[in-house]
């Protein structure tokens, strides 16, 4: 495959309260470049011309840290199923393509600069209940707390969430339900998560609403862009947990079960 000539339309914004605008750049990329490497090359040439480089988030560049973002041609993390932006390669684009790059948009994800948004609202939600605070003592004997294979798989599927925020970015309501449900489910389905199950459901829902995220209209766009392919069935689980938490009183809530 040969190199591709690309026209980029990139959202530039000098600061949180500044007005943003699109700027156009021409660049050349090899097919084996990742999308972020392509942006690195654009930034190198901007710096050579004494211009400010495009700000964007990235860290591990292997699809596990949840740091990279970007809405590429109207799709969070760009084309390709189950991938983050750093796992997107320029071979996905044709010679002469115009690529529009925008930051994740949501009131709860304010733009800091250019394509960088503040996703600390997610941290607030996890701080509200996405943890276990009960003292579980020293490491238990192997197999003394039984977890069925299916249950373990369910918990692991939910725990795959890397908190990138693509679900919020793609949702027309900026709903964080897929993220919140994943962060809730990986604890609520396991025996170790039972003592705080009810409080966790209530606290995480409250934190989600307080942070200003929208509601879910069951259009499942989040599932389609999630780099970890978390199912919207997880959202149905969150709904059930919330109803359950309002019906079950604290004293009746099950403590550790071997379910």
């Amino acid at each position: 495959m040969s190199d591709v000539d690309i026209t980029l339309k990139v959202w530039r914004q000098d600061g949180p309260d500044q007005k943003g605008r699109f700027e156009t750049y021409q660049t050349q990329a090899t097919p084996d470049m990742s999308f972020l490497e392509m942006l690195d090359v654009v930034n190198d040439s901007l710096e050579e011309g004494q211009k400010l480089p495009i700000s964007f988030d990235s860290d591990c560049r292997e699809g596990i840290c949840g740091m990279c973002s970007l809405v590429i041609n109207g799709v969070a993390h760009g084309p390709g199923e189950g991938t983050t932006t750093c796992q997107l390669y320029m071979r996905s684009f044709a010679d002469g393509d115009t690529i529009t790059i925008e930051p994740f948009r949501a009131r709860s994800f304010p733009v800091i600069r250019d394509l960088v948004v503040d996703r600390s609202a997610f941290d607030d939600i996890v701080q509200a209940g996405g943890y276990n605070s009960v003292n579980t003592g020293s490491a238990p004997d192997a197999n003394s707390v039984l977890v069925s294979k299916d249950r373990a798989e369910e918990a692991m599927d939910a725990a795959a969430c890397i908190g990138c925020g693509a679900c919020v970015a793609t949702c027309k309501n900026a709903s964080a339900m897929l993220f919140v449900s994943a962060k809730l489910k990986h604890l609520n389905v396991l025996p170790q998560g039972q003592p705080e199950r009810r409080e966790r459901s209530r606290a995480m829902l409250k934190a989600m609403d307080d942070a200003g995220f929208g509601h879910c209209t069951n259009e499942y766009e989040c599932e389609a862009v999630c780099p970890k392919e978390i199912s919207v069935g997880t959202i149905a689980f969150l709904n059930r947990e919330v109803y359950r938490s309002s019906l079950v009183t604290s004293s009746l809530a099950p403590t550790v079960t071997g379910e």
Partner: peptide
């Protein structure tokens, strides 16, 4: 929750 939309929008999922 979503005061600003996207310049380019592509429907995905359902």
């Amino acid at each position: 929750a979503k005061p600003q939309g996207y310049a380019v929008r592509q429907a995905v999922g359902g």
